[in-house]
């Protein structure tokens, strides 16, 4: 992973958008979050360090693992939007958030403002809403509470309120383009 990020750092440009999605299992020991991999696990601090040299000004990291809330503090920084499936490192059970995050990337409904651009905030709202409803309809105690943070100081919002200026960076962070814009991007 470290080498891959180093390669991205060489190739990426300032106008690019870097999107990192972590799917799998994460752990939190009370101090440090780790993304579990075969071999040594990767800590949130390491991941954040590896992403720093990437010149892309727009960065999004979507950590969908269990205990991903424990990575928020280490990952957040100005210009980077961080989305976690859980609100803290203590929410340790497997998550359904990634299912709905991926669904957001496929479902045109996720583009709530219908501008043919799916922003990080729109995709987050879609996945967060579906995750909440999943636990409600299955009458299960919610064991994950997703968060989004898009500044170095943000603690993370569960349901960001744009009228209060919350998650404004994420609102402008494109994740996907649809329709005519997609065609235009393919055939510039």
């Amino acid at each position: 992973m470290k080498e891959t990020f180093a390669q991205i750092a060489k190739e990426a440009k300032a106008d690019d958008t870097l999107v990192v999605t972590l799917i799998g299992h994460g752990t939190f020991d009370g101090v440090e979050y780790k993304f579990n991999l075969p071999g040594p696990d990767v800590t949130a601090k390491e991941l954040s360090m590896w992403m720093l040299p990437v010149p892309a000004k727009r960065q999004l990291i979507v950590n969908t693992t269990s205990a991903s809330g424990g990575s928020l503090a280490d990952l957040r920084q100005d210009g980077r939007t961080v989305i976690t499936a859980t609100k803290s490192g203590t929410e340790k059970l497997s998550t359904v958030f990634p299912r709905y995050w991926l669904e957001a990337l496929r479902d045109p409904q996720a583009d709530a403002d219908k501008n043919d651009v799916l922003s990080a905030l729109e995709a987050y709202r879609y996945a967060e809403s579906k995750t909440t409803k999943y636990y409600e309809t299955n009458k299960r105690l919610a064991t994950e509470h997703p968060l989004i943070a898009d500044t170095a100081s943000a603690q993370g919002y569960r349901t960001p309120d744009a009228t209060k200026g919350e998650a404004m960076v994420a609102m402008r962070m494109p994740v996907l383009v649809f329709g005519n814009l997609q065609n235009a991007a393919r055939t510039p």
Binding site: Q109, A110, A112, D113, K114, R125, Y126, S129
Partner: peptide
């Protein structure tokens, strides 16, 4: 149902 796509 508080839809994800109220405009739709």
């Amino acid at each position: 149902s508080k839809p994800v796509d109220p405009a739709g």
